[in-house]
Design a protein around this nucleic acid. Structure first.
Length: 576
DNA sequence: GCCGTTTTCGGCCCGACTGTTTTCAGTCG
């Protein structure tokens, strides 16, 4: 039974929690948390790499001890020290950490004073007002915990970037309109372009005396105030989304924006680098001794520690500091560099606009070519195109191309990759098309071996030009298929075949980690809207965000090139 | 537990808010 990276990471997180409940050294705890993060973000399964001779202690933050635990876990599926910890820490105590305001110290104190070792125990003690008798606990904390416990069930999980964007823009406008406010930016994981956002972080530049906190509390979507201060406030909106606002003087805006954009791991690393140079970085600026030497802009903060600007999408502690000091940061792709879109649908299948409407919308979105790739007919498909329907659409596209200006329409199809890796339409039916987009729409649960073979065989089909949404995941709904991606990337590079970064907000597939790995293997990426409505070309922004998180520059993206070159790329795949 | 152009031992990012306390610990981001 192969052990997945996420299981190793989850075990390390549990060890960290249990160590914290044992009152262990915080730096030892941090080592486990950092190792969990490192392992979770790896593009390839560690078990497979170890089997191939890789030594995990070469990973950053993983030394001899943790490497040994990884080996033990991979070999046996168990970790003895985790099991020992589970025996030594009262069962159930860990779930207390899920509650805001309860950390390891308070969880421990409640256990020792009242024997509380579960959320159910806590509720009972709260109901009987026993908590307030524990040293360092009081009536206010009791009330806070009561509210937190009630809210725990309905606590919102992370929302998609697009949903967060709706709330963020309203808040930004509201805060910017406060008299005296000089500047407002949305920071946090939103600014780093993560596919989901847990809470909103906003940074406000305002001179002393501007009461941003009071204004925020009057925002009509605020349901509860968690913290309220002169420079920092936290509220919860009616939707359940938490909002943290940080207010700084204008001269510190860059430093505060940097600090609040994160990620936490990135900030810790930046501050560590600064310390080595005799500097201190905080949210007010960069300091040498008591002298502030930077802070008005983010560029000044990085410049003060001797580094070039690092784009927010790269700030995940995934090698950006090494790249920055070597002056090898990628020139990240922008939306303006996209020249066209290689995946879109019309009313002929499951889209809701006509061919002409989709093409017009694409042209207005600044695209110079658009591939129409409606679904093929296949077993169980609704409204797939049959040979007659496809032939009719081809004629319509020829007719439209003769008529419209400013955009070229490519003839394509989205065809199913069947369980055996064959395509749902025979080669002769595909030969007339400009491109063939293959996609997995069924049999998601095949074994790693079968799924890998399936995709490798699909990549061997002569007419396949693009593998769409390769992992078939739906964020928070459907797990990615299990597959040896390094093999798939190698084959796609040899063919060559484009791999898609599908920009639908619930797909974003390939994700940032795999897209970076694919590009490193020499595969060209197609950022595609998969538009079903005329509004959907806006999804391309999200695709570009994900591509930037994957460190991709325009040269790694097929559809940043002129149509002639894209045609050559697509045609080359037909010749092999 | 990790790590090293100061170090193989002794460090490990930094500050705001809250509540329970009279000077600070805990939690969080």
């Amino acid at each position: 039974m192969p052990v997945h990276n996420d299981e190793i990471a989850t075990a390390f997180d549990e060890i960290a929690d249990l160590l914290s409940l044992s009152g262990e050294n915080q730096f030892r705890i941090r080592a486990y948390r950092r190792a969990a993060q490192t392992v979770r973000a790896l593009p390839e399964e560690l078990a497979a790499r170890i089997a191939a001779g890789f030594d995990p202690d070469r990973l950053p933050g993983i030394g001899a001890d943790l490497a040994g635990k990884i080996r033990e876990f991979v070999a046996s599926g168990h970790c003895k020290s985790l099991e020992a910890l589970r025996r030594s820490v009262p069962r159930g105590l860990r779930e207390m950490l899920a509650l805001p305001d309860i950390g390891p110290q308070r969880a421990r104190a409640l256990y020792e004073a009242l024997g509380i070792h579960s959320l159910a125990d806590l509720k009972e003690s709260l109901d009987h007002h026993r908590i307030r008798r524990v040293p360092h606990f009081g009536t206010r904390l009791e009330e806070r915990l009561r509210k937190s416990l009630e809210a725990l069930g309905e606590r919102s999980h992370r929302v998609s970037w697009n949903v967060a964007d709706g709330y963020a823009q309203g808040l930004r406008r509201f805060l910017a309109a406060i008299p005296g406010v000089a500047q407002v930016e949305v920071a946090g994981s939103y600014r780093r372009g993560r596919e989901t956002v847990g809470d909103l972080d906003l940074v406000v530049a305002a001179p002393a005396g501007v009461d941003v906190d009071r204004a925020l509390r009057s925002y009509d979507e605020v349901a509860a105030v968690l913290a309220s201060g002169r420079t920092r406030s936290s509220v919860v909106l009616r939707s359940g989304l938490q909002v943290d606002v940080r207010v700084v003087p204008p001269a510190s805006f860059g430093a505060a924006l940097y600090y609040f954009t994160g990620s936490k791991a990135h900030n810790i690393r930046l501050r560590t680098i600064a310390v080595a140079k005799g500097l201190k970085v905080n949210e007010y600026g960069v300091y040498r001794g008591r002298n502030r030497i930077a802070g008005e802009t983010e560029e000044s903060v990085l410049g003060a520690v001797g580094l070039p600007y690092i784009a927010p999408e790269l700030r995940e502690d995934r090698g950006e500091f090494d790249a920055a000091s070597a002056r090898h940061l990628p020139d990240l792709v922008t939306r303006e560099q996209l020249t066209g879109d290689l995946h879109a649908h019309t009313r002929a299948t499951d889209g809701n606009a006509s061919l002409e409407e989709m093409v017009d919308a694409a042209r207005r979105a600044g695209l110079r070519y658009l591939a129409i790739t409606d679904h093929s007919k296949y077993l169980g498909a609704v409204h797939g195109l049959d040979a007659t329907g496809l032939s009719r659409q081809i004629d319509q596209i020829d007719e439209l191309n003769a008529r419209v200006r400013g955009i070229r329409v490519l003839k394509g199809i989205e065809v199913d990759v069947l369980e055996d890796g064959s395509l749902a339409l025979p080669d002769p039916a595909l030969a007339r098309l400009d491109l063939v987009v293959g996609a997995v729409h069924s049999q998601f649960a095949l074994s790693r071996r079968k799924q890998t073979d399936r995709l490798l065989r699909a990549l061997d089909r002569p007419y396949l030009s693009v593998l769409a949404h390769p992992t078939a995941r739906l964020i928070d709904q459907r797990a990615p298929i299990d597959c040896d991606w390094s093999q798939v990337f190698r084959r796609a590079e040899e063919r060559p075949c484009l791999l898609e970064l599908n920009a639908q907000p619930d797909r974003l597939d390939l994700d940032d980690v795999l897209a970076r790995e694919a590009a490193a293997s020499g595969v060209l990426i197609s950022i595609a809207s998969d538009a079903h409505r005329i509004e959907d070309f806006a999804f391309l922004d999200g695709g570009v965000r994900q591509a930037r998180r994957a460190w991709l520059s325009a040269s790694a993206i097929a559809n940043t090139r002129p149509l002639g070159e894209v045609r050559r790329l697509l045609r080359r795949t037909f010749l092999k």
